[in-house]
Simulated assay, not measured.
Amino acid sequence: MSAAPPPVPLHRRLVAELLGTALLVAVVVGSGVAAQQLSPDDVGLQLLENSTATVLGLAVLIVIFGPVSGAHFNPVVSAADWVLGRRAGTGLTGVEVGTYTVAQTTGAIAGAVLANVMFDIEVTELSGTERAGSNLLIAEVVATAGLVTLVFALARTGRGPLAAPAVGAYIGAAYWFTASTSFANPAVTIGRIFSDTFAGIDPASVPGFVAAQLVGGLTGIALVRYLFPDVEAAAGDVVVPRITTPAESTPRSTR
Protein backbone atom coordinates (compact mmCIF):
# COMPACT_ATOMS: atom_id res chain seq x y z
CA MET A 1 0.00 0.00 0.00
CA SER A 2 1.39 3.41 -0.95
CA ALA A 3 1.71 6.07 1.72
CA ALA A 4 -0.76 8.93 1.77
CA PRO A 5 0.56 12.22 0.43
CA PRO A 6 1.67 14.66 3.14
CA PRO A 7 -0.50 17.65 4.01
CA VAL A 8 0.39 20.91 2.29
CA PRO A 9 1.97 23.29 4.84
CA LEU A 10 0.33 26.68 5.21
CA HIS A 11 3.40 28.53 3.95
CA ARG A 12 3.30 26.58 0.70
CA ARG A 13 -0.41 27.25 0.28
CA LEU A 14 0.16 30.96 0.84
CA VAL A 15 2.88 31.05 -1.83
CA ALA A 16 0.49 29.28 -4.21
CA GLU A 17 -2.24 31.83 -3.50
CA LEU A 18 0.17 34.73 -3.91
CA LEU A 19 1.59 33.44 -7.18
CA GLY A 20 -1.77 32.40 -8.56
CA THR A 21 -3.40 35.74 -7.82
CA ALA A 22 -0.37 37.63 -9.14
CA LEU A 23 -0.43 35.74 -12.41
CA LEU A 24 -4.20 36.14 -12.68
CA VAL A 25 -3.94 39.93 -12.39
CA ALA A 26 -0.98 39.93 -14.78
CA VAL A 27 -3.19 38.12 -17.30
CA VAL A 28 -6.11 40.51 -16.78
CA VAL A 29 -4.05 43.70 -16.92
CA GLY A 30 -1.55 42.53 -19.52
CA SER A 31 -4.19 41.31 -21.94
CA GLY A 32 -6.06 44.57 -21.41
CA VAL A 33 -2.98 46.55 -22.42
CA ALA A 34 -2.38 44.30 -25.42
CA ALA A 35 -6.02 44.66 -26.46
CA GLN A 36 -5.75 48.45 -26.34
CA GLN A 37 -2.63 48.35 -28.47
CA LEU A 38 -3.95 45.85 -31.01
CA SER A 39 -7.50 47.22 -31.33
CA PRO A 40 -7.28 50.89 -30.35
CA ASP A 41 -10.53 51.91 -32.06
CA ASP A 42 -12.79 48.99 -31.12
CA VAL A 43 -13.77 48.71 -27.46
CA GLY A 44 -15.90 45.62 -28.09
CA LEU A 45 -12.95 43.80 -29.62
CA GLN A 46 -10.76 44.92 -26.73
CA LEU A 47 -13.19 43.36 -24.27
CA LEU A 48 -13.32 40.15 -26.30
CA GLU A 49 -9.56 39.86 -26.33
CA ASN A 50 -9.29 40.69 -22.63
CA SER A 51 -12.02 38.25 -21.58
CA THR A 52 -10.67 35.42 -23.75
CA ALA A 53 -7.21 35.69 -22.23
CA THR A 54 -8.70 35.81 -18.73
CA VAL A 55 -10.82 32.68 -19.30
CA LEU A 56 -7.84 30.69 -20.54
CA GLY A 57 -5.38 32.05 -18.00
CA LEU A 58 -7.68 31.50 -15.02
CA ALA A 59 -8.41 27.91 -16.05
CA VAL A 60 -4.71 27.13 -16.33
CA LEU A 61 -3.90 28.74 -12.97
CA ILE A 62 -6.61 26.70 -11.22
CA VAL A 63 -5.12 23.52 -12.70
CA ILE A 64 -1.62 24.47 -11.52
CA PHE A 65 -2.31 25.76 -8.02
CA GLY A 66 -5.58 24.05 -7.11
CA PRO A 67 -4.04 20.89 -5.62
CA VAL A 68 -1.79 23.03 -3.39
CA SER A 69 -4.04 25.76 -1.99
CA GLY A 70 -7.46 25.16 -3.50
CA ALA A 71 -6.85 28.00 -6.00
CA HIS A 72 -9.14 30.49 -4.27
CA PHE A 73 -7.30 33.60 -5.54
CA ASN A 74 -10.17 35.55 -3.96
CA PRO A 75 -10.77 36.69 -0.34
CA VAL A 76 -14.54 36.33 -0.75
CA VAL A 77 -14.19 32.66 -1.72
CA SER A 78 -11.80 32.06 1.19
CA ALA A 79 -14.12 33.80 3.66
CA ALA A 80 -17.13 31.86 2.35
CA ASP A 81 -15.13 28.65 2.79
CA TRP A 82 -14.63 29.54 6.47
CA VAL A 83 -18.25 30.62 7.02
CA LEU A 84 -19.71 27.50 5.44
CA GLY A 85 -17.23 25.09 6.99
CA ARG A 86 -17.44 26.27 10.60
CA ARG A 87 -20.28 23.95 11.68
CA ALA A 88 -18.78 20.86 10.08
CA GLY A 89 -15.17 21.71 10.99
CA THR A 90 -14.10 21.73 7.35
CA GLY A 91 -12.52 24.33 5.11
CA LEU A 92 -10.19 27.11 6.23
CA THR A 93 -9.79 28.36 9.77
CA GLY A 94 -10.25 32.03 10.58
CA VAL A 95 -6.49 32.54 10.80
CA GLU A 96 -5.99 30.89 7.43
CA VAL A 97 -8.60 33.18 5.86
CA GLY A 98 -6.66 36.19 7.11
CA THR A 99 -3.35 34.91 5.80
CA TYR A 100 -4.90 33.85 2.48
CA THR A 101 -6.35 37.36 2.10
CA VAL A 102 -2.98 39.01 2.72
CA ALA A 103 -1.28 36.68 0.23
CA GLN A 104 -3.97 37.21 -2.40
CA THR A 105 -3.94 41.00 -2.08
CA THR A 106 -0.15 41.17 -2.12
CA GLY A 107 -0.10 38.93 -5.18
CA ALA A 108 -2.71 41.05 -6.96
CA ILE A 109 -0.67 44.21 -6.51
CA ALA A 110 2.49 42.43 -7.63
CA GLY A 111 0.69 41.09 -10.70
CA ALA A 112 -0.43 44.57 -11.77
CA VAL A 113 3.09 45.91 -11.34
CA LEU A 114 4.48 42.96 -13.32
CA ALA A 115 2.09 43.67 -16.20
CA ASN A 116 3.15 47.32 -16.18
CA VAL A 117 6.80 46.32 -16.32
CA MET A 118 6.26 43.88 -19.18
CA PHE A 119 4.49 46.53 -21.25
CA ASP A 120 6.89 49.33 -20.27
CA ILE A 121 4.24 51.31 -18.39
CA GLU A 122 5.05 53.62 -15.50
CA VAL A 123 4.71 51.45 -12.40
CA THR A 124 4.01 54.34 -10.00
CA GLU A 125 0.88 55.63 -11.76
CA LEU A 126 -2.46 54.71 -10.23
CA SER A 127 -5.50 54.08 -12.35
CA GLY A 128 -7.69 56.99 -13.34
CA THR A 129 -10.52 54.80 -14.67
CA GLU A 130 -13.62 55.74 -12.71
CA ARG A 131 -16.08 52.91 -12.17
CA ALA A 132 -18.98 54.44 -10.29
CA GLY A 133 -22.75 54.02 -10.35
CA SER A 134 -25.36 51.85 -8.69
CA ASN A 135 -25.64 49.71 -11.83
CA LEU A 136 -21.98 48.69 -11.52
CA LEU A 137 -22.37 47.87 -7.84
CA ILE A 138 -25.43 45.71 -8.54
CA ALA A 139 -23.42 43.98 -11.25
CA GLU A 140 -20.66 43.20 -8.75
CA VAL A 141 -23.18 41.72 -6.31
CA VAL A 142 -24.55 39.49 -9.07
CA ALA A 143 -21.12 38.47 -10.38
CA THR A 144 -19.74 37.59 -6.94
CA ALA A 145 -22.87 35.76 -5.79
CA GLY A 146 -22.80 33.66 -8.94
CA LEU A 147 -19.12 32.82 -8.47
CA VAL A 148 -19.55 31.72 -4.85
CA THR A 149 -22.61 29.64 -5.74
CA LEU A 150 -20.77 27.97 -8.60
CA VAL A 151 -17.64 26.93 -6.73
CA PHE A 152 -19.51 25.54 -3.72
CA ALA A 153 -22.07 23.77 -5.90
CA LEU A 154 -19.22 22.06 -7.74
CA ALA A 155 -17.59 21.03 -4.47
CA ARG A 156 -20.84 19.78 -2.93
CA THR A 157 -21.71 17.64 -5.95
CA GLY A 158 -18.25 16.15 -6.29
CA ARG A 159 -17.42 17.97 -9.50
CA GLY A 160 -14.34 19.82 -8.25
CA PRO A 161 -12.27 18.66 -11.25
CA LEU A 162 -14.58 20.77 -13.44
CA ALA A 163 -13.68 23.95 -11.54
CA ALA A 164 -11.01 25.09 -14.00
CA PRO A 165 -13.22 25.18 -17.11
CA ALA A 166 -16.41 26.05 -15.21
CA VAL A 167 -15.01 28.99 -13.23
CA GLY A 168 -13.13 30.23 -16.29
CA ALA A 169 -16.29 30.03 -18.38
CA TYR A 170 -18.36 31.83 -15.74
CA ILE A 171 -15.90 34.71 -15.40
CA GLY A 172 -15.64 34.96 -19.17
CA ALA A 173 -19.42 35.14 -19.52
CA ALA A 174 -19.69 37.62 -16.65
CA TYR A 175 -17.30 39.97 -18.46
CA TRP A 176 -20.15 40.40 -20.94
CA PHE A 177 -23.39 40.07 -18.98
CA THR A 178 -22.42 42.40 -16.10
CA ALA A 179 -22.04 46.17 -16.46
CA SER A 180 -18.91 46.09 -14.29
CA THR A 181 -17.14 43.41 -16.39
CA SER A 182 -17.15 41.17 -13.31
CA PHE A 183 -14.28 42.02 -10.99
CA ALA A 184 -15.96 39.79 -8.33
CA ASN A 185 -12.79 39.75 -6.23
CA PRO A 186 -11.60 42.28 -3.60
CA ALA A 187 -7.91 41.36 -4.00
CA VAL A 188 -8.02 41.72 -7.78
CA THR A 189 -9.95 44.97 -7.42
CA ILE A 190 -7.23 46.42 -5.18
CA GLY A 191 -4.50 45.13 -7.49
CA ARG A 192 -6.06 46.82 -10.50
CA ILE A 193 -5.66 50.22 -8.81
CA PHE A 194 -1.99 49.97 -9.72
CA SER A 195 -2.45 49.97 -13.49
CA ASP A 196 -3.64 53.05 -15.33
CA THR A 197 -4.87 50.99 -18.29
CA PHE A 198 -7.98 49.49 -19.86
CA ALA A 199 -8.28 47.06 -16.93
CA GLY A 200 -7.67 49.54 -14.11
CA ILE A 201 -9.95 51.06 -11.48
CA ASP A 202 -9.41 54.37 -9.71
CA PRO A 203 -8.90 54.20 -5.92
CA ALA A 204 -12.11 56.12 -5.17
CA SER A 205 -14.19 53.42 -6.86
CA VAL A 206 -12.66 50.55 -4.89
CA PRO A 207 -14.59 50.79 -1.57
CA GLY A 208 -17.94 50.55 -3.36
CA PHE A 209 -16.80 47.60 -5.44
CA VAL A 210 -15.41 45.73 -2.44
CA ALA A 211 -18.58 46.37 -0.42
CA ALA A 212 -20.71 45.08 -3.29
CA GLN A 213 -18.51 42.00 -3.58
CA LEU A 214 -18.93 41.26 0.13
CA VAL A 215 -22.70 41.57 -0.25
CA GLY A 216 -22.50 39.27 -3.24
CA GLY A 217 -20.49 36.78 -1.21
CA LEU A 218 -23.11 36.70 1.55
CA THR A 219 -25.83 36.35 -1.06
CA GLY A 220 -23.99 33.43 -2.63
CA ILE A 221 -23.56 31.76 0.76
CA ALA A 222 -27.28 32.07 1.47
CA LEU A 223 -28.20 30.74 -1.96
CA VAL A 224 -25.88 27.75 -1.87
CA ARG A 225 -27.05 26.86 1.64
CA TYR A 226 -30.63 26.89 0.41
CA LEU A 227 -29.90 24.81 -2.69
CA PHE A 228 -27.48 22.42 -0.95
CA PRO A 229 -28.35 22.27 2.79
CA ASP A 230 -25.38 20.01 3.59
CA VAL A 231 -22.82 22.07 1.65
CA GLU A 232 -20.74 22.57 4.83
CA ALA A 233 -19.30 19.08 4.50
CA ALA A 234 -17.71 20.01 1.18
CA ALA A 235 -16.16 23.33 2.22
CA GLY A 236 -12.68 21.81 2.29
CA ASP A 237 -12.88 20.99 -1.43
CA VAL A 238 -13.20 24.59 -2.70
CA VAL A 239 -12.23 25.57 -5.38
CA VAL A 240 -10.22 22.42 -6.09
CA PRO A 241 -9.67 19.73 -3.44
CA ARG A 242 -6.27 20.17 -1.82
CA ILE A 243 -3.83 17.33 -1.23
CA THR A 244 -4.53 16.10 2.30
CA THR A 245 -3.83 13.18 4.56
CA PRO A 246 -6.64 11.42 6.42
CA ALA A 247 -5.49 13.23 9.57
CA GLU A 248 -5.70 16.65 7.94
CA SER A 249 -9.14 15.97 6.54
CA THR A 250 -10.53 15.18 10.02
CA PRO A 251 -12.97 17.91 11.10
CA ARG A 252 -11.34 20.58 13.23
CA SER A 253 -12.80 21.36 16.63
CA THR A 254 -11.22 24.82 16.97
CA ARG A 255 -12.12 27.65 14.59
Rank of each mutant, 00 (worst) to 15 (best):
G111K: 12
T101V: 11
G146S: 09
L48R: 09
L58T: 14
R156Y: 14
A4W: 12
G216V: 03
L19D: 08
G66W: 01
V142Q: 03
V123R: 00
S195K: 08
A145Q: 05
V123L: 00
M118H: 12
V238K: 08
T129C: 01
R86N: 13
T124V: 11
A110P: 08
G94Y: 11
Y175Q: 05
A53I: 04
Q104H: 03
N185S: 01
A139Y: 06
L92S: 09
P229H: 01
V60I: 15
T99F: 14
A110C: 13
V33H: 06
A143H: 02
L14T: 08
N74Y: 08
A233I: 02
A3G: 13
L23E: 06
V151C: 00
T129D: 03
A35Q: 05
Q213H: 08
A22M: 14
Q46Y: 02
V141P: 05
G208F: 12
A187T: 03
L38V: 03
A35W: 00
G32W: 04
L61V: 08
F183K: 10
V77R: 07
R12P: 06
D41Y: 14
D81M: 13
G217I: 00
N50K: 10
V151I: 05
L48H: 02
F198H: 02
S134L: 14
A80N: 00
F177T: 05
A164N: 09
A35L: 00
V210K: 01
T250G: 10
A155G: 05
L24P: 05
A173R: 08
V25A: 06
G98L: 14
L14K: 09
P6E: 09
L162W: 15
A145H: 06
R131I: 01
R252W: 08
P9A: 12
Q37Y: 06
I221E: 06
P67W: 01
T157R: 14
I138V: 11
E232C: 04
P203C: 11
I201Y: 02
S78L: 07
F209R: 06
V117N: 11
N116G: 10
R87Y: 05
W82D: 11
L45D: 07
D230Q: 13
G57F: 07
R159H: 15
A22F: 10
A174S: 11
I243W: 10
Y226A: 11
L92R: 13
G168M: 07
S205I: 06
L227G: 01
L45K: 13
P6M: 07
L92H: 12
D230L: 10
G168R: 03
G66Q: 04
G146N: 04
L84S: 10
R156F: 13
N74H: 09
A204V: 15
E17L: 02
T157G: 02
V83R: 06
V43N: 12
T254K: 12
N135R: 15
T197P: 05
P203A: 12
L162D: 14
M118W: 15
L48S: 08
S2H: 14
L10K: 08
L24M: 13
T105L: 10
W82R: 14
I121S: 11
S182H: 10
S2A: 15
G85E: 08
V206K: 01
E125V: 14
G216Q: 07
S69E: 04
G30H: 10
T219G: 15
T129G: 02
